[in-house]
Computed example of a mutant assay.
Amino acid sequence: MRKELLKLYLLLLVAFVGGTVAFGQTEKGNRKQTAKQDTLDSRLIQVHKIFILGNEKTKDYIITRELRLQEGEYVPAGSLDELVETSRNNVYNTNLFYSVTIDQLELDSATVDLLIKVEERWYIWPSPVFRLADRNFNDWWYNRDHDPSRVKYGLKLDVYNFRGRKESLRFIGLTGFEKRLIFQYSIPYIDKSQKHGLTFGGGYLNNKKLPYMTTDHFTVFTDSTTAEEINREATSGYIVYTYRPSFYNYHYLMLQGYSMNISDTIAALNPNYFGEGTTSQQVLGLSYSFSQDKRNNKNYPLTGHKTLA
């Protein structure tokens, strides 16, 4: 009886020791595999060359400005895919391209080339402008007897990626009830570091028929006897300095001003138009704003955030 109990004890002891050894070997093997993976992820990969295809108009440096990787740079292997994907999103968010892909071309275990393929958008967009002078369609149709002379119409022209440098031009010309001209020219980068930019803009308008007061919630305009002279004339202008120190942070400093003059007729009809019968008004303003945009896609964001201040 004692011999049988001793045998059973020995069998259990062998089984326990064997299981412990096997478990120790498995755990040791897992640690080796993890260490091996960590070693592979931490090894450095060199970005040898960056090739760009499809940018028939866009300058190369506009694209490389958005990349998290540069030629000759060494990056951890475990971070390469994430950096490539972030770079692709940054290039796409310039809104210059319909599509952007970045392929990794492995030269050897420690060197890759990057191939960026883009499809450029159509950059010239003319469009007609048709606006009512009144508050809304019902006001124009019922209160103004749908008078066709109370319509502003003209042309808007947007030119994006002007000269292939991500510059933009805008021109708006209106005639009819109101004469208006608007112009804007934006230069995102004026220096080699591509951190500083400028935007210029201005406008001009004049009116013959002009709303000069509101009575019983009804806007009162000058009548036909006073509508042959220019009753309001205004000019405006602005300059915006842009500072982009990193990929996602933007600082804006704007200096703007305008000058407006009204006729003596308007000042007589409503002395409070500018106050105390004044016929001119000038304003000069300075403003600052900040934006941080970390959305993965500016048009259809799925992740990230945008901060305005």
Rank of each mutant, 00 (worst) to 15 (best):
S42N: 14
R68M: 15
R2A: 11
I190S: 01
V129P: 09
E228F: 10
S236G: 11
K59D: 15
E56F: 10
G203D: 06
L155K: 03
A234V: 06
E229W: 02
I172H: 03
T219Y: 09
K166T: 03
Y9Q: 15
F221T: 00
G237R: 03
R144T: 04
G197V: 05
V240G: 00
Y98Q: 13
D60T: 11
F171I: 14
L198R: 03
T64V: 13
K166A: 15
A35G: 12
E120Q: 13
K3F: 11
G78C: 00
S236I: 00
G154V: 03
I182K: 12
T39Y: 11
G19R: 06
D223Y: 04
M1D: 14
Q46E: 13
Q184L: 09
D103Q: 12
P188W: 08
Y252C: 04
I172Q: 05
L210D: 09
Q184V: 05
E119Q: 12
S186D: 13
Y258G: 05
N95G: 04
F177Y: 13
F177D: 14
G277W: 06
L114D: 12
A35L: 10
T111A: 00
R131W: 09
G202P: 07
G173A: 08
Y238E: 06
P128R: 07
T86K: 12
E85L: 15
D216K: 10
W122F: 14
K32R: 12
Q37D: 11
G304T: 09
S236W: 11
I102M: 08
L8R: 09
